[in-house]
């Protein structure tokens, strides 16, 4: 059973490596969105420091949203998805593998470059580890929730906008606790409670989202 998991994971990572331009585009989008903010609100360091956690988190959320349509679209178009659904392997397993591969190629790069962007926005250096940790806990939740939306909107006209409408409200709690963790650390109140809640959210999403996602894929390919 686990061999399916690793086979799908390996295949998706390989495909992502072949299309690495897409991954770079997501990352570049994240960087550019963050860099736009000083132009919009002014380069006053105090202001930038105050809004840095929220800006970084919103940008990460948008980057995730923009790449979500890639999660199943290719497999849906070439029939791989149907094959996988017809196979006797439990769908939850390979769905989870696909989501993990997706996170490794879009979420993880964002987590890695975020501290550098935090410095650009004059975020306090002590808060950088918390920023990394909150993104590492939070972006997998975004990928898991987003996968359900991506599965439901497969092949639907206007799918991209629809996907945003469906899942952005669901992202709000993650945004609150993610940005809140960084802010709490920067202001000295401690980020433990936020991070624990994010971890709890991740555990809940890991348990429920793959099931909902597998059911959604069945509905969309019927």
């Amino acid at each position: 059973m686990l061999s399916t998991f690793f086979a799908v994971l390996r295949r998706d990572l390989l495909l992502a490596w072949r299309g690495r331009a897409d991954v770079m585009v997501t990352l570049a989008f994240f960087v550019i969105v963050v860099c736009l903010f000083p132009f919009g609100v002014g380069a006053e360091p105090n202001l930038l420091r105050a809004i840095a956690p929220g800006v970084l988190w919103v940008a990460a959320l948008l980057a995730c949203l923009l790449s979500l349509h890639r999660l199943f679209a290719q497999d849906y178009a070439d029939g791989t998805l149907e094959q996988l659904l017809l196979s006797s392997e439990p769908a939850v397993l390979w769905v989870l593998a696909k989501i993990l591969a997706f996170w490794l190629t879009t979420g993880l790069p964002v987590v890695v470059v975020a501290p550098g962007l935090g410095l650009l926005l004059d975020l306090e250096q002590g808060a950088l580890p918390v920023l990394v940790l909150s993104l590492a806990l939070g972006t997998p939740i975004l990928a898991l929730l987003g996968a359900v939306g991506a599965a439901l909107t497969l092949g639907v006209r206007g799918g991209g906008m629809l996907l945003a409408l469906l899942i952005l409200p669901l992202f709000v709690p993650v945004l609150i606790f993610g940005a809140g963790a960084v802010e709490a650390e920067a202001s000295g109140t401690g980020a433990l409670a936020h991070l624990l809640l994010l971890g709890g959210g991740l555990a809940g999403a890991l348990a429920l989202a793959p099931i909902a996602c597998a059911a959604s894929l069945r509905i969309s390919t019927e």
Partner: peptide, 17 residues
């Protein structure tokens, strides 16, 4: 599916907000 996912999230959203 989306109605159920939303219903599960409504309390989460409320408490987080």
């Amino acid at each position: 599916i989306i109605a159920l996912v939303g219903a599960v999230n409504v309390p989460v959203i409320y408490f987080s907000v």
